[in-house]
């Protein structure tokens, strides 16, 4: 028990220190712009299809679940607004984070882990380059930046999925579905979604680069690093989801109280 706890604490501490190193590298010696755009492009292209598809189906699921209840209250008109609001505030960022952690997180830690166990990272250092600056930073920034593109795509696809299901399943036509979106999805909700997405992306990018960078022990080690990345990102994302919800709730109360 103490062993588990101490290894967990070591992991968390290592991750936080690694994040600090990344931030220091970002400020002191930023990576080349080419590398950065390269990564943004790679991450976005890699995840476009899965994110779009997942977004579509999540929108559809939300509509199916909400439709019956809305019908009971005679508020079918709100269906589109509610489903979209829930997606923007909560489900969208969460979905993007899960999809990214499966696709990009695992891929990045596999890639960096492979570079580590085949001594490529040592070689980079020996040839006078800083692996944090050359390898880690572009990937880190790439994940954070492209998560916004993917979030937008996921949201659009989920509205699309919701519209189609709303029409097919609850008899809400497209126009009615879309009409209430602007009234229910307010600026604070959008901000909430963006902040969440940003936080998740930071967490995800830190964990996957850290786990890959510190991998040891051949092909098996790379496999283990990927598994650990997948598990710890999922758990951390769920925790940070609660944390951001909680903090944003407090912020809203404080702002309302001040008014």
């Amino acid at each position: 028990m103490t062993k588990v706890a101490s290894s967990l604490l070591t992991d968390i501490g290592g991750c936080v220190l690694f994040f600090k190193d990344i931030m220091r590298t970002l400020i002191r010696k930023p990576c080349r712009r080419v590398d950065f755009f390269d990564q943004v492009w790679k991450v976005t292209v890699q995840s476009v299809s899965t994110t779009g598809m997942a977004g579509f189906f999540v929108g559809a699921i939300m509509t199916v679940q909400f439709a019956l209840q809305m019908k009971e209250f005679g508020a079918l008109g709100f269906l589109g607004g509610l489903a979209t609001s829930a997606t923007v505030r909560e489900v969208g960022p969460l979905l993007i984070a899960f999809m990214l952690s499966g696709k990009v997180g695992a891929f990045t830690s596999a890639e960096l882990g492979t570079m580590r166990v085949t001594e490529q990272i040592d070689a980079i250092r020996c040839l006078g380059a800083d692996p944090l600056q050359e390898m880690i930073l572009p990937r880190f920034l790439g994940i954070v930046v492209s998560s916004f593109f993917l979030l937008t795509l996921g949201l659009i696809m989920s509205i699309f999925g919701g519209m189609i299901m709303g029409a097919a399943f609850a008899g809400v036509n497209f126009e009615e579905y879309l009409r209430h979106i602007p009234t229910i999805v307010t600026l604070p909700s959008v901000l909430n979604g963006i902040v969440k997405c940003f936080v998740f992306a930071l967490v995800l990018a830190t964990i996957c680069t850290y786990k890959g960078f510190t991998a040891t022990g051949g092909a098996k080690g790379v496999g283990q690093a990927v598994v650990k990345t997948a598990v710890s990102t999922m758990v951390c994302i769920v925790i940070f989801d609660w944390l951001t919800s909680f903090l944003s709730d407090i912020t809203v109360r404080v702002v309302l109280g001040a008014q």
């Binding site: 899965t50 598809m53 997942a54 189906f57 999540v58 559809a60 699921i61 199916v64 899960f98 999809m99 499966g102 696709k103 695992a106 891929f107 830690s109 596999a110 890639e111 882990g113 492979t114 166990v117 085949t118 051949g218 092909a219 098996k220 790379v222 496999g223 690093a225 990927v226 598994v227 997948a230």
Partner: peptide, 24 residues
């Protein structure tokens, strides 16, 4: 070394998407 990592990535993504579709 990259083979195991790549296979794991693909498997996680495929399972996650499959789960969402089946859920729907």
């Amino acid at each position: 070394a990259e083979g195991v990592g790549a296979a794991t990535t693909r498997s996680v993504v495929t399972s996650s998407v499959a789960i969402i579709v089946i859920d729907f």
